[in-house]
Design a protein around this nucleic acid. Structure first.
Lengths: 339, 339
DNA sequence: CCGGCTTCTGAAACCGGTTTCAGGATAGCG
DNA sequence: CGCTATCCTGAAACCGGTTTCAGAAGCCGG
């Protein structure tokens, strides 16, 4: 078996022979790891180019102890938000000498633990964990001594480096905006019951109400699971309960889409009859009708930040947990209530 | 530096010592590569578990010549279609012992060539090329002797293994459906001018007209670039030209969303005033208002198929280029024309 | 009871680099 | 001019596995 651009497989030894020097010297030239006499350096470089040599990364990894790879644990459920983070990581690593290796957690804790194990076994030099629910101490155990960044999740222990979205303030922002527009009966479609993001956004919702000296109507709180279907179900449930509401705060844009569709099917217009606000600001949200007002999560940027953080940690740098703030993106799905 | 679950770093040599056998025997037990006396086997397995040994994949790769990785070249532009293919590849590889390594081509030929080179340098055992525009013979050159699958692109040479969507028949399907519904003035928003997918879909559009003994109105053909913005621009252009049309075939769902929005802003309803059909069937398409009729491209499945194909090729199996057919997904954005 | 064949096993070579170490050449200094 | 400090360089060890090879042990039939 052979690879590479050309023939057999040219090794550092071949270069050494052709250039009339030793392996060591070739290595030194290639890595700029020591001063080498100019004429030898030249000979090595020429030989390298003539034979079309590209060093065997695997051998190099073994010898140097660094694999030049970063393990990325995804959850792969096809959520636009998490996917965008992965993309950001890939993009951010694109400018470095490190390559990302992916493993798929499938939102199952055991799978995630296995996947982390597989990545560790591959001797990745750093680890980026996107979302997921692996317990803190399990992470510590498996990734001890290994630079690790956790994205889109906030682990309280300061052993961990996290880049997460401040979901409380995000939920607060969305709700306060609706309140400012004059809404009082604001339904909320929550995300997965125990999902920390969902819990936090809900906390923000309550906080905005509290701050305004109001109390949300508990009957307007319905559960969902971040899917578009759950948005449909939630609206149907609200309408079947025959409750009055003038606005909906959806757990994420996808469920907002579902909610929008369900409202439309019942003949209710957004924002005339009901205002609607989402969470995420995914690509499509600016182009649905009406363009969706939402809280922007800079997913791609978070991924990119994570890649920078991990590179920095690998180089021995420092990093401390960062919360990124959501941004209210005002479009056209919210209007003051009619009356 | 040390990794792993526990202490220093336990190697096969440690296991050998503890189990009272030689390295060779440990290797044989771990890889089931030869028969070993039951009691020694047991000793090895026990030692392995007790010390929490996980083999160094890098060393194994170097020795065996197989890196147990598959290189994936993406284009990372955030296109829902291409992204979904990547996800499919990750998912498909999840069940194997191979891990995907990503490199980002950024839709630039030079970047793509570099990226392929980097992957080859990493001694990947197989390569999955998603989209992109690297010339056929450049691929042959760099990937010679390396199992390679090209997804979402059809290279005529039979040296290559491709999994691609039949865009001609997809475009045909969409257009024929509109014709069947009674539309005659069918505008088309094309994708990027020289993009093969766009060209093919347009060919399908013409084919459907031909087959019906009709000719499309050339003034209803406008260019786009697969973005939502381009959908908006296209509709505005059509309307400003003051042309009569009863239906729009958009290059992809994203540009259909844009078109839908632009129509809405001009007070035109879908499908009452104008019917709209897209291409892709991305996640959100079922939940916009009205739910979008479209041609489904099984992106994720294509990625999964690619991963299966590459694993098969690595094992020495055969694979021949496959065209997957699009499927017309009828929802509610198309209706017969009013008159 | 012995030769031949099979089975198991360990020593050693190997994969392709990096890194240590020691020695030779050269330069600097008194 | 002699002696030490410095600079280059190559030999060899090393990273942690796999695989070859040859020898030891066990089994068989004659």
């Amino acid at each position: 078996m052979w690879y590479g651009t050309g023939m057999k497989n040219v090794t550092i030894e071949d270069i050494a022979r052709v250039a009339g020097v030793s392996k060591s010297t070739v290595s030194r030239v290639l890595n700029h790891t020591a001063v080498v006499a100019p004429e030898k350096r030249k000979a090595v470089i020429e030989a390298t180019e003539r034979l079309g040599f590209s060093p065997n990364v695997v051998a190099r990894s073994l010898a140097s102890g660094r694999s030049m790879t970063v393990g990325v644990l995804t959850q792969l459920i096809g959520s636009p938000f998490y996917d965008a983070i992965s993309q950001g990581v890939i993009a951010g690593l694109g400018y470095s000498d490190y390559s990302p290796i992916f493993a798929d957690g499938q939102w199952q804790e055991t799978k995630q633990i296995d996947a982390i194990g597989a990545l560790v076994g591959r001797r990745v030099d750093g680890m980026v964990l996107i979302g997921g629910g692996v317990p803190s101490d399990e992470i510590s155990r498996q990734c001890s001594g290994l630079p690790t960044v956790i994205v889109a999740r906030n682990l309280p222990s300061d052993r961990h480096h996290c880049i997460y979205m401040d979901n409380v303030s995000g939920g607060y922002l969305a709700t306060r905006y609706l309140l400012q527009q004059g809404h009082r009966q604001i339904a909320i479609i929550r995300g997965l019951e125990h999902h920390p993001d969902a819990v936090d956004r809900f906390a923000g919702y309550q906080q905005a109400f509290n701050e305004a000296g109001l109390t949300p109507d508990p009957r307007l709180i319905v559960d969902g699971d971040f899917s578009a279907e759950s948005g449909i179900r939630a609206v149907n449930e609200l309408l079947s309960r025959d409750l009055a509401f003038t606005a909906i705060f959806a757990a994420n844009d996808l469920s907002a889409f579902g909610a929008r569709l369900a409202l439309d099917q019942r003949g209710m217009q957004v924002p005339r009859d009901v205002s609607l606000i989402g969470f995420d600001d995914q690509l499509e949200s600016a182009y649905v009708t009406p363009p969706l007002t939402t809280v922007r999560q800079p997913a791609r940027e978070m991924g990119r930040q994570a890649s920078e953080a991990i590179l920095n940690l690998i180089e021995g740098g420092e990093f401390s947990t960062q919360a990124v703030q959501g941004e209210l993106i005002i479009r056209q799905s919210v209007a003051p209530p009619l009356r």
